Amino acid sequence: MRTAVLVGALALAAVTVTTPATAEAAKDPTPAPVSTSDLSTLNGLSYETVSYGRERRQDMDVWWTADGTPRPGVFLIHGGWWSSGDKRQMTTIAREYADEGYAVFNLNYRLSGQAAWPAQRTDVLSAIQTARKHAARWGFDVKNFVVVGFSAGGHLAASVGTYGDGMNGLKGVVGLSPIVSPLRAYTDGAVTTDPYKRKLRASAIQLAGGCEPKGRCSRIWASMEVAWHASRHDAPMLTAHSADEFVPPVQSQLLKQMLGQVGVPVTVITTPGTAHSSAMYRQPGVSEQVHQWIAERLGGQL
């Protein structure tokens, strides 16, 4: 059995994949090899870590049920001001979705100190493309998946959701305290004493390559605005915020308005308090609503 596992791992490592066929991802036409490590089986689930590109942090953990049945996918994106954090923060949540029967892809991506926008969005698109490429190995139904992001990861998830005019197979996007509008965060951070809002403003500037939203940098900031890219074939979205957190619900209200104008539904959950991101996700009833919404988008409980 161990020999078979090693042979399978080596075979996957020998495969090369091409990043998404978009103008953005095509900036680096060099194929990225898929590498495999830490293969194990836990409680009927298979798990491995693979690279979807050649740069540091272009990797993801994959959890799947190895029974030969294609299953809906859940892509998870961690938060951390775009400049910190790691997929390890999402391990418990990844296991929850894997235990429900989904094929789960828990992503790392290049941080803003390593590469400026749009590298982060490109990485998520590349990870999805890699999952498509090796769908048979991971029992992944490429026509049925959602993307779930937390805080800065929520911005990346929503950005993927409005990139182009829809994505084949993407049935929904979930953002937990998503930074839908870096421009709004930039403005809010300039007129407040809240240290988190001020940090978020500085983080958005760093994401944009160190430039503020004026002059030559205005196009970069426009690219970072989720709602400005709404189109009628975008996937439905669910977002959740605490009423008084530093990424307020108004961030998602603009998204709801803009996507609503093109006929795409957006549901915004607001819970009392100041809890942010994964802490807010663990507030009573929030994760249950998220799981139910995802199950409805992906065709019911497995």
Rank of each mutant, 00 (worst) to 15 (best):
P272L: 06
K256I: 00
Q257N: 09
L255V: 06
L254K: 02
S252H: 04
L259V: 05
M258K: 15
Q251G: 02
T271Q: 14
Q261C: 00
I269G: 05
Q253N: 02
V264P: 00
V268A: 03
V264T: 14
D244H: 14
V262L: 10
D244T: 12
D244F: 06
G263R: 03
P272N: 10
G260T: 04
M258C: 01
V266S: 02
V247P: 02
I269V: 15
Q261Y: 04
M258W: 03
G260S: 11
P248W: 13
A243T: 11
F246W: 12
S252N: 12
V266G: 02
L259S: 07
Q253H: 08
V250K: 12
Q251R: 03
V250P: 00
P272A: 07
P265A: 04
G260Q: 11
D244A: 11
G263Y: 11
L255R: 01
E245F: 11
S252G: 10
P249D: 08
P265K: 07
V266H: 00
E245M: 05
P248L: 09
I269Q: 14
S252F: 04
K256Q: 15
V262S: 10
Q253I: 01
P265H: 03
Q253R: 07
V250C: 00
P272W: 09
A243G: 06
I269D: 13
V264D: 01
Q253P: 00
V262T: 13
L259C: 04
G263W: 06
T271N: 12
K256V: 02
L255Q: 04
Q261M: 10
T267H: 03
V266E: 01
Q253L: 08
P265Y: 02
L254W: 02
V268M: 03
Q261L: 13
Q251M: 13
G263S: 05
A243S: 14
P265R: 05
L259Y: 03
P272H: 13
K256M: 11
V266P: 00
Q261F: 05
L255K: 02
A243I: 00
K256F: 01
Q251V: 07
P249Y: 12
A243H: 10
V266Y: 01
T271L: 11
E245Y: 06
A243L: 13
L259R: 10
K256E: 14
Q261N: 13
D244C: 00
T267E: 05
A243V: 06
Q251C: 06
F246K: 07
Q257P: 00
L259T: 04
T270Q: 14
V268E: 08
T270L: 12
V262C: 10
P248M: 05
T271W: 12
K256H: 13
M258H: 06
T270H: 13
